[in-house]
Amino acid sequence: MSLFCGSVKIIDNVEIAPGIFRMGLECPEAAESASPGQFLQIRCFEGLAPLLRRPISIAAADKDSGMIEIIYRVVGEGTGILARKTKKDMLDIMGPLGKGFPVPRGLRRPVIVGGGIGVAPLLFLAKSLKENSSRDSYGRESDFCGLAFVGFSSGEEVFGMQFLEDCCFNVEICTDDGSEGHKGFPTDLLEEYLKHIMPIPASNRENAKSAGDSECTSASSAILPEAVYACGPEPLLKKVKQIASMTKIPTYISVEQRMACGVGACLGCAVKSSGGGYLRACRDGPVFEAHQLIL
């Protein structure tokens, strides 16, 4: 049984940006089986209000040390209580839950698109993509160079960028207010990049601007991105889905929905399926192929 539920020790709980915390947890069971995109159901409070567990993505997992990490933004009661926990407190968690991002072997140009706290699970993803990049079917090292387009509301909220760079991702930052990086949204950058790299009709090509001077985008226009991965607020996912529908690149998005059970039992976390009816964000997702959902 790979699902864990119980009390684990908090290793640290640090504010890494205003209102954003990173918490380390000691949980060998979850660390062993976690994959990027999966989440935990965290019981922030032992009493009866707030009652429900809160879903928080796994931002890192290390099998060797048995540690997992979460990164969360304080937005209400539950996350507020979480932020006041300290080192050595115990925390009741359940996980890893849900279907995460597929991480095929040997990808060379994966693209990740993140907005705000949605960057958290993408850190775990970036690491796995890098780790799996060299193991193509011939066991060769590859010229892995991922691309990350990330957006935050302002410069002071930015987190995880060094980590992405260490995972061999070229990072392009946007902020809503322009206080760091480009002013605008990461999906604008994704669109520009794809226009630059994809074979497009000559009439459109003139408008296509280079996505920047990075090595990857300018030098190796022959290598198309093999996959696009996105997590962030709904408008970002909508835009990514729209872009995906114009390319043939497999695109995966991680969605949020209010949850009760987190395991697929209550049908509370419905997201609209393009095949009719609903899918469960907690069990069928939270990661879906973009075309699976109506956003």
Binding site: P50, L51, L52, Q257, R258, M259, A260, C266, L267, G268, C269, A270, V271, K272, G276, G277, Y278
Partner: peptide, 11 residues
């Protein structure tokens, strides 16, 4: 049955 549109849960 497909059930109701979200939101379906409120604490």
């Amino acid at each position: 049955r497909c059930g109701n549109p979200p939101p379906r849960i409120y604490e």
